[in-house]
Design a binder for these strands. Structure first.
Lengths: 339, 339
DNA sequence: CTGAAAGCGCTTACAG
DNA sequence: CTGAAAGCGCTTACAG
């Protein structure tokens, strides 16, 4: 037997309990001026009997906000993003918020579509893991809407809270790994430079290398998308030139790029790290199982959640609109066999 | 300069255009009785000027439904689930729906929390990829709420649309791979049997094997969670017994279990497939890059999206409540080196 | 072709 | 301690 399709509303509860909807509402929300124990009992009973669940939509419309937080990520297939999202989700849930995930696919229009959608749903905030510059995004942060940027800072010109590692320092760190091993034929396959994270990683790498007198040949610098496929083809074009002189150490803008590069090397019969060394970024949680050879910068994804929650709380507590607030999390170096 | 924090509402548009809100609403929604071209022009201009975006909440409350679809998945870190979600998302978006993702974490309470949340948000439907039996789920499908099950059929007793492969046949197929190679020392590490998918895969495997006179020793059957870690420890307990007699061919309930088993074999110095053969399920899109050795059943995740959309459309078009409707997608065998 | 009005399910001053 | 009433932003018969 199917239940009635319509679910109970607050008036049903009020009728059944023999009180007004105002009273029911107050009891549900635990409002200060306490109701009489007897009333409370009746109302709770009615709620239980009807299996009443307040309408999020009615509530949101009235309160002008929901307890939803939207998280937009560029690529659900990247396990690092998934891991960060998981961390944020559980931190949020502990505070009574629910997280809903949207996929921007690294595309400005898609991101805007979801941003508009989420705002119209009255979410209490949006977290962007890997934001891409877009008109709606700009509008949101300028209007003081609570948005926090994760991993990738806000596009230039926008000022908003950020949670992530010091990407520049991490880039420096990769350079030092190569320097310590005596590599001088260094290369880089970075991600899109509209990403401040990619920008900073790459810059740190270049700067530190040049302190050592090492200049990157232009043919040894490639931009790729942040995917395995793209890493593969970028590596191809770099390793496959006519001459036999190829780079011996490659900075990869993230782990998937490193996976692709690795495969390309294998396909070319190049050995890692004997012929070429590879260094990744983020330390995708899959690495320990499926890429136990990859040396990479480890970002502490388990601790992103708490940091994001505090960032939101600061924003909510602060009516003064735009504000900058950076939470820089420590990274570490995961040394495996690819260097 | 920050924009005004408050966004425009339909009354603002109506005032600016000098018409009633009813007219604005009709124009936005393209209602039949067409407005005069002049009115339309004025309204569109006002909308553009104010950058008006209808409130999803106001609209949902009034219409008693939104254009949101919720998708719940058990584990965002499983790339197969992510790939299916991506496919569903883009199919949905083409129909004008937005998908929001929730993570049940393979846990009934968490699933219920999100289910209730989503229903209270007035989503137009919920798709569950890997549903776990739970009270709220039961309530939803019994009340005729549009839910479609992906990959894992509805828990027993519930009747609802399903999109996925024929898991039993796939299990049979794995058995045949082993049989053809002459394996007789066969084992299985399946996932939780509350999952009809795991149940069917395992059953197909067992049945086909026993047709061949091959019985699975009880010690060679293990239940694991659908994760790499769990696969690793299940394999441990199976391969690590005192005697030297271990299985030569292991059915793994999904790819992550196979990854874990593979690693365990490596750690034990066992060669794949010389010492033990492994067969996975789903064909995680990462396989070709990071596990190019894994033979597995390929589920056509790219085509799940369209099938899910039609399943919803059938449900919406049909007021008669509960209905069963299966869309069985073809699977194939991906032969790599682990068998 | 267009507007006034009711109502979707809630919350919250305001009275009492 | 509790209720009547207004209103959140929309849509949709109902009149005209």
């Amino acid at each position: 037997m199917a239940d009635k399709a319509k679910s109970a509303k607050i008036t049903d509860v009020a009728n059944l309990a023999g009180v007004s909807v105002a009273t029911v509402s107050r009891i549900i929300n635990g409002v200060a001026k306490k109701a009489s124990p007897d009333t409370v009992r009746k109302v709770k009973a009615a709620i239980a009997e009807l299996n009443y669940q307040p309408s999020g939509v009615g509530r949101a419309l009235r309160r002008n906000k929901s307890h939803l937080i939207a998280m937009v990520i560029p690529d659900a297939n990247n396990a690092f993003y998934a891991a960060v999202a998981t961390s944020v989700e559980s931190a949020l849930r502990q505070k009574g918020y629910s997280m809903i995930l949207c996929n921007s696919d690294e595309d400005a229009d898609t991101q805007d579509l979801y941003l508009a959608e989420m705002r119209s749903l009255l979410v209490s905030g949006v977290a962007l893991l890997g934001a891409v510059p877009s008109p709606e995004l700009e509008k949101m942060v300028n209007s003081g809407f609570p948005v926090v940027f994760i991993n990738r800072k806000a596009p230039k010109g926008l000022t908003a809270p950020f949670v992530g590692i010091d990407n520049y320092a991490a880039g420096v760190c990769v350079a030092e790994q190569f320097i310590n091993q005596g590599y001088t034929d260094c290369a880089a396959i970075h991600g899109p430079l509209h990403s401040p994270a990619q920008q900073a990683r790459f810059q740190g790498y270049v700067d530190r290398l040049s302190e050592e007198g090492i200049q990157l040949k232009p043919e040894w610098v490639r931009e790729a998308k942040l995917t395995i496929e793209s890493g593969y083809s970028a590596a191809s074009s770099m390793l496959t030139g006519g001459d036999k002189h190829f780079p011996r150490a490659i900075f990869c803008g993230n782990d998937p790029i490193a996976y692709g590069s690795y495969r390309r090397c294998q396909d070319l019969g190049l050995q890692i790290p004997k012929d070429v060394a590879l260094f990744g970024f983020d330390d995708n949680p899959l690495n320990q199982w499926l890429a136990p050879w990859l040396s990479t910068i480890h970002a502490p994804y388990e601790s992103f959640g708490a940091a994001v929650v505090s960032a939101f709380e600061r924003t909510w507590g602060n009516e003064s609109g735009a504000q900058e607030m950076e939470t820089i999390l420590p990274f570490s170096v995961t040394q495996r066999s690819s260097v």
